[in-house]
Nucleic acid binder design. Structure first.
Lengths: 350, 350
DNA sequence: GACGCGACGGAAAACATTTTCCCAAGATTC
DNA sequence: GAATCTTGGGAAAATGTTTTCCGTCGCGTC
């Protein structure tokens, strides 16, 4: 009971060779006679044998582990994706290592390097690519190294790196949202646009702007306020809007937690959503679905994104990187009731 | 560029021995002459050398990875704890592997075994212990094996296993909540009590009952409804309460997402919180802090729990298992306004 | 009855590190 | 000036698998 029985010990106890023991335990192409197999299995049981994954990894050249990098695991958006990855990984008998960059995207490259050291079979990068050229380059260099060494990489969000990608159709979703909101009668918007260099944020803003333009609505410079991609970022951006902007009837926050912060900011001034101001978000994170008023948002199937990314990686034959586009769907809630043509809101709808 | 340069290659290019290369790169007790070290480092850089963690693990006997097991990573409660673990792990240069049991606690033992195969340095079990004797036994057996092999184990929740534990003072918190609620004038409660065999759920119920008893309030059998530990579980349990129970003025859901489900159920009947019914939860998950009305709940510092668990593990000298108790604090919100002695609620407070 | 063949067991060679032991050369001490 | 110490380099063992290659045995075939 000194702790670690090795396959060698198992073989000795079972009275067979190392090769036979190995074949009996993890079932190779070669068959092992029934009684010997039985003996080996019994010995393993008796010795509390636990195969040393590190040794196996060394021999095979890769670990049956996939790494995942997220900006913040406590953000429901990413924990949703992670949940999908983990479910799919479990079905494939893979373990998942997760690293959180705490929203410093510069750290992604470090973690990719870390996963390379572990000889992980694959890495999934979730969360927005940035528009910073330098960062993208260092990340790309690290990703190349990872792939050169035999690993696979997939990204969930934008197609910015030449790897398998699950693209969230942020533009399409935000554009559809804009269409629906203008159909409801809104004309005067503010957008809480997240960090300037975050592509998801940027795409959502762009798509929204496109949708508005199709309805003949322009978005001026002051109507777009940047801020952190978090609840607090939404809160602050909203405060700025409330102080500097008048005549707004609807606020679009480029993600749900920012919308949450925005609503908090609005309420902290004694105003009401949607009576004084309507709010829409993006993502449809589950914890917010029961909020009153129901937040108008754009639904993204987060678990699905994660699952698709993992499946893509595993089915990949090393050919050209593939792209899978995932549509999103507008969910209208009471946070953006229809406006009467006159300019006063109807208070029904839910 | 065939992918993987080994330390041997680095040594060859630098014109030194394997031993020297190793010492230069990971800095052992032995010093290496400045110019040789320089040469080695340059060679490593040039070759894109990436140390093989598996080989290192094999030699050392343990991987610099900590495993973490949670019931559901998409639940903000656990992603909060995970976030704390990951932050602390990062500071220590450790990687984190996460496994989600999808609330089948019987799978915990399997994952511990999996982490044992990986030779992980430590495992953190988050989430409630169950009261099932059989499950606890198999888990304990697996934990013993893990420890026999040199790994450390910590648990976040109850002290049910003889390992380092961060105990959440569920009883104390729920009791304080009961005290506060009775002080506010509530007398007729329903408790949405979660699964029967989940200790966290059970402890919160017990503590709540104790607090009520101190105020002279009894909880009858019908006033306690079991259900899943999730939003949907809360919803269903609440529906049951609404159908079968009358005269209730306050509902205590043993966790926040259940409270969320309960509120949804209440509203789906056209009733209002807190006008028709007050609701309290447990956990104070961050996404719900901006909900209107503010949910009365018991705050648990989730990140802290995770951090403490990791620190406990690392500082552990293999002595007797230690226990660290973490208090929780009642947060009163507008979801449980003070009742007027007469029986009508004052509508202020928030 | 020699020959080929299928099935199955074993020896041994990797896989990439870390670390112990040995050794050489220069510095220090009496 | 010899003995001892210190400093730093190298050879090689050890870590636990997987897998290739080889060998053997029994059996069917011509």
């Amino acid at each position: 009971m000194e702790g670690n029985a090795t396959l060698f010990d198992v073989a000795r106890v079972a009275g067979v060779s190392l090769a036979t023991a190995s074949r009996a335990i993890n079932g190779s192409a070669r068959t092992v006679g029934a009684e010997l197999r039985e003996k080996v299995l019994r010995a393993a049981q008796e010795l509390d044998y636990s195969p040393n994954a590190a040794a196996r990894t060394m021999k095979r050249g890769h670990a049956d582990v996939v790494g995942m990098i997220v900006p913040d695991i406590a953000d429901p958006y990413f924990s949703g994706i992670a949940s999908g990855v983990m479910k799919a990984a479990d079905e494939q008998g893979l373990m998942v290592s997760i690293a959180s960059t705490r929203r410093q995207s510069s750290r992604e490259a470090e973690y990719v390097a870390g996963f390379r050291r572990q000889r992980n079979r694959a890495v999934i990068l979730a969360g927005s690519r940035t528009s910073s050229r330098a960062e993208t380059e260092t990340l790309k260099a690290e990703v190349d190294r990872f792939e050169a060494q035999g690993g696979r990489v997939a990204v969930v969000s934008q197609r910015k790196l030449p790897v398998d990608t699950v693209v969230v159709e942020n533009r399409q979703g935000a554009r559809a949202l804009a269409t629906d909101l203008t159909d409801l009668g809104y004309r005067d918007f503010a957008v809480l646009a997240g960090p300037r260099d975050l592509l998801s944020a940027k795409d959502r803003l762009d798509g929204f702007r496109t949708g508005l333009a199709e309805a003949g609505v322009e978005l001026s410079r002051e109507q777009v306020v940047n801020g952190e991609f978090s609840r607090d970022g939404g809160f602050q951006a909203m405060e700025q809007v409330l102080e500097e902007l008048g005549g707004i009837d609807c606020v679009f926050a480029v993600n749900d937690v920012m919308a949450l912060g925005a609503i908090a900011a609005i309420r902290s001034r004694g105003l009401d959503v949607p009576r004084h101001l309507s709010v829409a978000g993006f993502g449809d994170i589950s914890t917010l679905r029961d909020m009153a008023p129901r937040l108008t948002t754009v639904r993204v199937d987060l678990e699905r994104l994660g699952r698709l990314a993992l499946e893509m990686i595993l089915s990949s034959e090393g050919g050209a990187p593939r792209t899978r586009r995932e549509k999103c769907q507008v969910v209208l809630g009471a946070s953006t009731p229809g406006r009467k043509p006159v300019g006063r809101r109807s208070s029904a709808r839910g």
